[in-house]
Amino acid sequence: NLYFQGLKYMVPGARVTRGLDWKWRDQDGSPQGEGTVTGELHNGWIDVTWDAGGSNSYRMGAEGKFDLKLAP
């Protein structure tokens, strides 16, 4: 699974964008943008601060869902 392989790169400072299971509307800005991981992966959740200004926790394994992917 590509998403599980990418988890080791989901570290503080990593750049991310919305992924396969995104369901959080425009939390990442409008139009959709990139963000920066600000915390360690914990119980399948990870913290992100978006360039647009907001921050929140997103699923990276929790509930079998992956809200994020590494930015290109």
Results as ranks from 00 to 15, higher is better:
R59L: 02
E34F: 14
N56Q: 08
E63V: 04
H42T: 13
E40Q: 12
P72F: 13
Q32M: 13
L70A: 08
Q27S: 07
R59P: 00
A62L: 04
D21L: 03
A14G: 03
V48E: 00
E63Q: 13
Y3S: 14
G44R: 00
A52T: 11
G61E: 01
G53Q: 02
E63Y: 12
G61N: 02
Q5D: 15
A14Y: 04
T17A: 11
S57Q: 11
S55C: 15
L2T: 14
G19T: 06
D28V: 05
K23I: 14
A52M: 11
P72Y: 13
G39P: 00
Y3K: 12
A52F: 10
G53K: 03
V48A: 01
H42R: 14
D47E: 15
M10K: 04
W45T: 01
L41R: 08
G53Y: 04
L7G: 08
Y9R: 09
V11Y: 09
P12K: 13
F4Q: 14
R25N: 14
A71S: 12
F4R: 10
F66D: 01
D47K: 15
P12T: 10
Y58W: 02
L20Q: 14
D21T: 04
F66E: 02
Y3I: 14
S30N: 14
G54P: 06
N43W: 09
W50T: 01
R59T: 01
G39L: 04
G61H: 01
G54W: 08
V16Y: 02
R59F: 02
T38Q: 08
R15Q: 01
K65I: 04
G39Y: 03
H42C: 15
L68N: 00
G64Q: 07
W22F: 06
I46G: 00
D21M: 04
L20A: 13
N43C: 15
R18V: 06
K8V: 11
G61F: 02
D47I: 13
K23S: 10
E34D: 08
S30F: 11
W50H: 00
K8E: 15
L2A: 15
G19S: 06
W50L: 01
D21Q: 04
R15A: 01
L41K: 05
G13Q: 04
R18P: 07
L2R: 14
V37F: 02
G39C: 11
R18A: 06
G61T: 02
S55R: 13
D26H: 08
V11R: 10
V11S: 08
Q27V: 06
K23M: 12
A62Q: 04
Y9S: 09
E63M: 11
Q27H: 06
S57N: 09
G54R: 07
L7T: 08
Y3H: 15
Y58H: 02
D26G: 07
T49H: 10
G35V: 02
D28K: 04
